[in-house]
Computed example of a mutant assay.
Amino acid sequence: MEKNINKRHKSLWKSVMEDLNGQLDNFKYGDRFYTIADICRKYGVSQITAVKALSELEQQGLVQKIRRRGTIVTARKGSGRLWLIIPGVGGVEKSLYRSVVWMKIYQGLVSQAAKIGFEFCGPISDANLTSLSLSGDKKAGFFVIRNLEPRIKGFLQEYSLPCVLLHPDIEDADTCMVKVNRKRGGFLATEHLAGLGHKRIGLMIGSITSAPYLPRFQGYQQALRRAGLKFDWSLVKETSGFDPAEDSYALDQILAKPDPPTAFFAANYSRALNLLQYCQLRKIRVPENLSIAAYDNFPEMSISQPPLTTIETNLEEVGATGVNLMAALMRGERLQPEVVVETELVVRASARPLKA
């Protein structure tokens, strides 16, 4: 008898859950969903059954319980179709996977799109945009990573299609953007080294006049000022970051100084790995003889020897935030022109207090 009751109870909550799932199309993203009491009244079921049905919807990512707001709809069928535009003719897959930056943002896009009910149609080359069937499709949205080129912007404006620019190097005043706080990243890395007692902190960076690196350079300078340390141009080396020999030459120059730095901030992952390799080849012990803080918390950073203290740029969050902005754009909401995703310091074993 007890077995039959359990079987009937299980069947009942599933039936309620399936019916509730079918009603999600009547709600907008962010709407308040039925309460437990609502479900009990609507279906004439017990509180246990209502809780089980609602919990199952939450586990599927369709609704979410938020304190002081109740249960909120976070996904529904048919929210729209999304594309990530890749500049350049052909080679979409190669372009997308050419960097960890793109891949992390892409993962955030795909994951969040699935959670809130968008159909993510994948990356598309800008050369293939005109082949899309968009006539009358008001639920199509597009993302661009880094830079919104004029020909892409022209296409989107011609069809009045919403676009969100992700992690831009060049900002666009007419487009919603999700930015990483690069300046704070440079500040946090340098502040950490200064807090460990280092007074001579070198900087390996790309061109400080370029959009990606200028904010990191400004953060570096700000942290030095905050710590009461004098800025020294001779400790700053601008390199391409992709040629270990070039970085080695720059490091030879800095470390040959009478008062060389005791720590370095490497402003991206390739310079950090080149710096670490340089130290290994020259028997410079990290962090005993030289402390390092890096930028970009890529997988290599946690498995290097020693594991590198670095800046987490939260690129998956950039992608996820972009999807949420797109949902708001499609609902016709007025939005701030930009959303800033904060960077964080990840402390590992590559930096230590300066010995007196």
Score class of each variant (00 low, 15 high):
149 E>V: 15
91 G>P: 13
182 R>C: 15
324 N>R: 13
121 C>I: 08
156 L>A: 05
276 L>W: 05
83 W>C: 05
189 A>I: 00
25 D>G: 14
165 L>G: 00
165 L>P: 06
299 P>D: 15
303 I>T: 02
289 N>F: 07
234 S>E: 13
236 V>R: 05
287 P>W: 11
274 N>V: 03
150 P>E: 02
57 L>F: 05
275 L>E: 07
137 D>P: 03
197 G>V: 05
291 S>P: 09
232 D>E: 14
208 I>P: 14
87 P>L: 05
156 L>V: 05
35 T>G: 10
50 A>F: 00
177 M>N: 02
195 G>M: 07
114 A>R: 01
221 Q>W: 06
182 R>A: 15
234 S>N: 13
320 A>I: 08
236 V>E: 06
342 E>G: 12
317 E>F: 12
197 G>D: 09
83 W>F: 15
33 F>H: 07
116 I>T: 08
292 I>W: 02
66 I>C: 11
20 L>M: 10
319 G>M: 14
8 R>E: 00
87 P>N: 06
160 S>C: 12
46 S>Q: 10
184 R>C: 05
55 S>Y: 10
333 E>W: 02
349 A>M: 09
146 R>N: 15
107 Q>W: 02
97 Y>A: 05
290 L>D: 04
145 I>W: 05
35 T>N: 00
41 R>H: 04
124 I>G: 09
56 E>L: 03
240 S>A: 13
302 S>V: 08
221 Q>K: 15
244 P>E: 09
304 S>I: 02
113 A>S: 06
40 C>N: 10
132 L>W: 04
348 R>P: 04
49 T>I: 11
45 V>E: 06
214 L>T: 08
37 A>K: 09
204 M>Y: 00
219 G>N: 09
85 I>R: 13
288 E>A: 14
116 I>K: 11
210 S>N: 10
355 K>D: 07
225 R>I: 00
259 D>W: 07
203 L>P: 04
21 N>F: 12
56 E>K: 11
128 N>F: 05
57 L>R: 08
123 P>K: 08
71 T>L: 15
21 N>D: 13
329 L>F: 03
256 A>Q: 14
